[in-house]
Nucleic acid binder design. Structure first.
Lengths: 110, 110
DNA sequence: TTAATAGTTGCACTATAGTGCAACAATGCA
DNA sequence: TGCATTGTTGCACTATAGTGCAACTATTAA
Protein backbone atom coordinates (compact mmCIF):
# COMPACT_ATOMS: atom_id res chain seq x y z
CA UNK A 1 0.00 0.00 0.00
CA UNK A 2 1.11 3.51 -0.68
CA UNK A 3 -0.11 6.90 0.28
CA UNK A 4 -1.35 8.47 -2.88
CA UNK A 5 -2.79 11.67 -1.65
CA UNK A 6 0.34 13.61 -2.48
CA UNK A 7 -1.78 16.30 -4.03
CA UNK A 8 -1.52 18.36 -0.87
CA UNK A 9 -5.25 18.12 -0.29
CA UNK A 10 -6.94 17.07 2.91
CA UNK A 11 -9.42 14.27 2.36
CA UNK A 12 -11.90 12.21 4.32
CA UNK A 13 -11.97 8.45 4.27
CA UNK A 14 -14.92 7.94 1.92
CA UNK A 15 -13.18 10.05 -0.71
CA UNK A 16 -10.13 7.84 -0.48
CA UNK A 17 -12.28 4.71 -0.70
CA UNK A 18 -13.79 5.94 -3.95
CA UNK A 19 -10.38 6.94 -5.29
CA UNK A 20 -8.33 3.90 -4.37
CA UNK A 21 -11.14 1.33 -4.61
CA UNK A 22 -10.11 -0.29 -1.34
CA UNK A 23 -12.51 -1.13 1.50
CA UNK A 24 -13.07 1.44 4.20
CA UNK A 25 -11.60 -0.55 7.09
CA UNK A 26 -8.43 -1.21 5.14
CA UNK A 27 -7.77 2.44 4.44
CA UNK A 28 -8.84 3.42 7.93
CA UNK A 29 -6.18 1.16 9.40
CA UNK A 30 -3.61 2.28 6.88
CA UNK A 31 -4.21 5.88 7.83
CA UNK A 32 -3.98 4.96 11.49
CA UNK A 33 -0.50 3.50 11.00
CA UNK A 34 0.65 6.59 9.13
CA UNK A 35 -0.90 8.81 11.80
CA UNK A 36 0.86 6.92 14.60
CA UNK A 37 4.10 7.34 12.68
CA UNK A 38 3.52 11.08 12.94
CA UNK A 39 3.06 11.73 9.23
CA UNK A 40 -0.66 12.48 9.25
CA UNK A 41 -3.10 14.59 11.21
CA UNK A 42 -6.77 13.73 11.64
CA UNK A 43 -9.38 16.40 12.21
CA UNK A 44 -12.92 15.42 12.99
CA UNK A 45 -15.65 17.56 11.49
CA UNK A 46 -19.12 16.24 12.11
CA UNK A 47 -19.44 12.77 10.67
CA UNK A 48 -16.37 13.24 8.51
CA UNK A 49 -12.71 13.00 9.46
CA UNK A 50 -10.27 15.01 7.38
CA UNK A 51 -6.77 13.64 6.99
CA UNK A 52 -3.82 15.75 6.00
CA UNK A 53 -0.09 15.04 5.70
CA UNK A 54 2.18 16.71 8.22
CA UNK A 55 4.42 19.31 6.59
CA UNK A 56 6.43 20.63 9.50
CA UNK A 57 8.89 17.78 9.96
CA UNK A 58 12.32 18.33 8.45
CA UNK A 59 13.02 14.95 6.91
CA UNK A 60 9.52 14.60 5.44
CA UNK A 61 10.09 17.24 2.79
CA UNK A 62 12.55 15.16 0.73
CA UNK A 63 10.30 12.14 1.28
CA UNK A 64 7.35 13.93 -0.33
CA UNK A 65 9.68 15.16 -3.02
CA UNK A 66 10.61 11.57 -3.78
CA UNK A 67 6.98 10.45 -3.93
CA UNK A 68 6.27 13.18 -6.46
CA UNK A 69 9.24 12.07 -8.55
CA UNK A 70 8.41 8.37 -8.45
CA UNK A 71 7.62 6.89 -11.86
CA UNK A 72 4.16 5.44 -12.50
CA UNK A 73 4.98 2.78 -15.05
CA UNK A 74 1.76 0.81 -14.81
CA UNK A 75 -0.50 3.85 -14.67
CA UNK A 76 -2.21 2.73 -11.48
CA UNK A 77 -1.46 5.95 -9.69
CA UNK A 78 -2.72 7.98 -12.63
CA UNK A 79 -6.02 6.09 -12.53
CA UNK A 80 -6.31 6.61 -8.76
CA UNK A 81 -5.58 10.29 -9.21
CA UNK A 82 -8.20 10.62 -11.93
CA UNK A 83 -10.85 9.05 -9.70
CA UNK A 84 -9.73 11.33 -6.89
CA UNK A 85 -10.14 14.48 -9.00
CA UNK A 86 -13.58 13.33 -10.08
CA UNK A 87 -14.55 12.57 -6.52
CA UNK A 88 -13.46 15.99 -5.31
CA UNK A 89 -15.97 17.54 -7.70
CA UNK A 90 -18.74 16.22 -5.47
CA UNK A 91 -17.68 18.53 -2.65
CA UNK A 92 -19.81 21.50 -1.65
CA UNK A 93 -18.01 24.57 -0.33
CA UNK A 94 -14.83 22.53 -0.16
CA UNK A 95 -16.33 20.03 2.25
CA UNK A 96 -17.30 16.42 1.64
CA UNK A 97 -21.05 15.97 1.76
CA UNK A 98 -21.61 12.44 0.48
CA UNK A 99 -20.48 8.98 1.57
CA UNK A 100 -18.98 6.19 -0.44
CA UNK A 101 -20.28 6.34 -4.00
CA UNK A 102 -18.94 3.04 -5.30
CA UNK A 103 -21.79 0.57 -4.70
CA UNK A 104 -19.49 -2.42 -4.23
CA UNK A 105 -17.57 -0.71 -1.46
CA UNK A 106 -20.49 1.04 0.21
CA UNK A 107 -21.66 0.00 3.66
CA UNK A 108 -24.92 -1.79 3.01
CA UNK A 109 -23.73 -3.64 -0.08
CA UNK A 110 -24.87 -7.26 -0.11
CA UNK B 1 17.27 -2.97 8.71
CA UNK B 2 18.41 0.22 7.08
CA UNK B 3 21.08 1.11 4.65
CA UNK B 4 23.57 3.13 6.57
CA UNK B 5 26.29 3.64 4.06
CA UNK B 6 24.99 7.05 3.09
CA UNK B 7 28.50 8.39 3.28
CA UNK B 8 28.84 8.05 -0.47
CA UNK B 9 31.62 5.50 -0.11
CA UNK B 10 31.80 2.16 -1.80
CA UNK B 11 32.36 -0.67 0.63
CA UNK B 12 32.81 -4.40 0.66
CA UNK B 13 30.77 -6.75 2.78
CA UNK B 14 33.32 -7.41 5.51
CA UNK B 15 33.60 -3.69 6.17
CA UNK B 16 29.86 -3.49 6.63
CA UNK B 17 29.88 -6.50 8.93
CA UNK B 18 32.42 -4.81 11.18
CA UNK B 19 30.49 -1.53 11.08
CA UNK B 20 26.95 -2.78 11.63
CA UNK B 21 27.83 -5.81 13.77
CA UNK B 22 25.48 -8.04 11.81
CA UNK B 23 26.40 -11.46 10.42
CA UNK B 24 27.78 -11.68 6.92
CA UNK B 25 24.94 -13.69 5.39
CA UNK B 26 22.37 -11.24 6.74
CA UNK B 27 24.01 -8.23 5.15
CA UNK B 28 24.74 -10.15 1.98
CA UNK B 29 21.06 -10.88 1.54
CA UNK B 30 20.09 -7.35 2.48
CA UNK B 31 22.42 -5.98 -0.16
CA UNK B 32 21.02 -8.43 -2.68
CA UNK B 33 17.50 -7.14 -2.14
CA UNK B 34 18.64 -3.55 -2.53
CA UNK B 35 20.63 -4.50 -5.62
CA UNK B 36 17.63 -6.24 -7.18
CA UNK B 37 15.61 -3.12 -6.49
CA UNK B 38 18.12 -1.26 -8.64
CA UNK B 39 19.55 0.94 -5.91
CA UNK B 40 22.96 -0.69 -5.64
CA UNK B 41 25.75 -1.82 -7.94
CA UNK B 42 28.15 -4.64 -7.10
CA UNK B 43 31.63 -4.75 -8.54
CA UNK B 44 33.79 -7.77 -7.97
CA UNK B 45 37.47 -7.14 -7.41
CA UNK B 46 39.42 -10.24 -6.54
CA UNK B 47 37.99 -11.78 -3.41
CA UNK B 48 36.20 -8.60 -2.50
CA UNK B 49 32.93 -7.20 -3.80
CA UNK B 50 32.49 -3.45 -3.68
CA UNK B 51 28.98 -2.12 -3.28
CA UNK B 52 27.95 1.38 -4.20
CA UNK B 53 24.60 3.19 -4.26
CA UNK B 54 23.22 4.12 -7.67
CA UNK B 55 23.17 7.87 -8.20
CA UNK B 56 21.73 8.22 -11.67
CA UNK B 57 18.06 7.56 -10.94
CA UNK B 58 15.89 10.64 -10.66
CA UNK B 59 13.72 9.77 -7.69
CA UNK B 60 16.64 8.42 -5.64
CA UNK B 61 18.15 11.82 -5.04
CA UNK B 62 15.40 13.04 -2.69
CA UNK B 63 15.42 9.61 -1.04
CA UNK B 64 19.10 9.94 -0.14
CA UNK B 65 18.42 13.50 0.92
CA UNK B 66 15.80 12.20 3.34
CA UNK B 67 18.14 9.57 4.76
CA UNK B 68 20.72 12.25 5.45
CA UNK B 69 18.10 14.37 7.21
CA UNK B 70 16.68 11.54 9.31
CA UNK B 71 17.14 12.07 13.04
CA UNK B 72 19.25 9.60 15.03
CA UNK B 73 17.58 9.80 18.40
CA UNK B 74 19.05 6.66 19.91
CA UNK B 75 22.54 7.21 18.55
CA UNK B 76 22.70 3.81 16.90
CA UNK B 77 23.55 5.25 13.51
CA UNK B 78 26.26 7.43 15.03
CA UNK B 79 27.85 4.35 16.60
CA UNK B 80 27.66 2.44 13.32
CA UNK B 81 29.21 5.36 11.51
CA UNK B 82 32.05 5.63 14.04
CA UNK B 83 32.87 1.94 13.59
CA UNK B 84 32.71 2.42 9.83
CA UNK B 85 35.19 5.33 9.89
CA UNK B 86 37.54 3.29 12.05
CA UNK B 87 37.21 0.30 9.75
CA UNK B 88 38.01 2.36 6.67
CA UNK B 89 41.35 3.24 8.24
CA UNK B 90 42.44 -0.36 7.68
CA UNK B 91 42.35 0.11 3.91
CA UNK B 92 45.53 0.20 1.86
CA UNK B 93 45.54 2.38 -1.25
CA UNK B 94 41.78 2.80 -0.86
CA UNK B 95 41.16 -0.92 -1.14
CA UNK B 96 40.02 -3.36 1.53
CA UNK B 97 42.79 -5.81 2.37
CA UNK B 98 41.51 -7.59 5.46
CA UNK B 99 38.45 -9.71 6.28
CA UNK B 100 36.06 -9.49 9.19
CA UNK B 101 37.88 -8.16 12.23
CA UNK B 102 35.21 -8.75 14.84
CA UNK B 103 36.03 -12.20 16.25
CA UNK B 104 32.39 -13.00 17.11
CA UNK B 105 31.27 -12.40 13.54
CA UNK B 106 34.26 -13.88 11.76
CA UNK B 107 33.98 -17.08 9.74
CA UNK B 108 35.72 -19.65 11.86
CA UNK B 109 34.38 -18.40 15.18
CA UNK B 110 33.29 -21.24 17.48
C1' DT C 1 46.84 -28.42 -5.81
C1' DT C 2 45.54 -27.55 -1.42
C1' DA C 3 43.93 -24.62 2.19
C1' DA C 4 42.15 -20.39 3.63
C1' DT C 5 39.29 -16.44 2.77
C1' DA C 6 35.25 -13.35 0.95
C1' DG C 7 30.89 -13.85 -0.21
C1' DT C 8 26.32 -16.30 -1.66
C1' DT C 9 22.26 -19.21 -1.18
C1' DG C 10 18.85 -23.33 -0.22
C1' DC C 11 16.12 -24.81 3.36
C1' DA C 12 13.33 -24.90 7.41
C1' DC C 13 11.73 -21.99 10.79
C1' DT C 14 9.90 -17.78 13.24
C1' DA C 15 8.15 -13.20 13.42
C1' DT C 16 5.70 -9.58 11.59
C1' DA C 17 2.45 -7.41 8.59
C1' DG C 18 -1.84 -7.49 5.93
C1' DT C 19 -6.83 -9.22 5.42
C1' DG C 20 -11.90 -9.87 6.18
C1' DC C 21 -15.67 -10.25 9.11
C1' DA C 22 -18.50 -8.35 12.30
C1' DA C 23 -19.38 -5.54 16.14
C1' DC C 24 -18.67 -1.06 17.77
C1' DA C 25 -18.72 4.33 18.72
C1' DA C 26 -20.10 8.86 17.21
C1' DT C 27 -22.63 12.09 14.70
C1' DG C 28 -26.65 14.14 12.28
C1' DC C 29 -31.24 13.95 10.24
C1' DA C 30 -36.22 12.50 10.21
C1' DT D 1 -35.73 9.27 20.22
C1' DG D 2 -34.52 6.15 16.59
C1' DC D 3 -32.09 5.11 12.60
C1' DA D 4 -28.96 5.69 8.86
C1' DT D 5 -24.27 7.15 8.02
C1' DT D 6 -19.08 7.81 8.65
C1' DG D 7 -15.45 5.77 10.55
C1' DT D 8 -12.84 2.55 13.99
C1' DT D 9 -11.27 -1.78 16.00
C1' DG D 10 -10.95 -6.74 18.22
C1' DC D 11 -10.29 -11.18 16.63
C1' DA D 12 -8.82 -15.06 13.96
C1' DC D 13 -6.56 -16.07 9.88
C1' DT D 14 -3.23 -15.80 5.89
C1' DA D 15 0.68 -14.03 3.54
C1' DT D 16 5.04 -12.13 3.48
C1' DA D 17 9.46 -10.93 5.30
C1' DG D 18 13.40 -11.87 8.31
C1' DT D 19 16.59 -15.44 10.64
C1' DG D 20 20.19 -19.09 11.37
C1' DC D 21 22.50 -23.03 9.95
C1' DA D 22 25.23 -25.17 6.84
C1' DA D 23 26.70 -26.12 2.33
C1' DC D 24 28.25 -23.86 -1.61
C1' DT D 25 31.25 -20.94 -5.28
C1' DA D 26 35.14 -18.12 -6.43
C1' DT D 27 39.47 -16.30 -5.67
C1' DT D 28 44.16 -15.95 -3.70
C1' DA D 29 48.29 -17.44 -1.44
C1' DA D 30 51.31 -21.13 0.19
Amino acid sequence: MRLLAMTGEETCLCELVDSLLEPQYKLSRHLKIIRQAGLLTAEKEGRWVYHRLVQEVLFLEPLYQMLKTLPDNDGIFAADLARFRERMCLREDGRCRVGIQNPELAEGSV
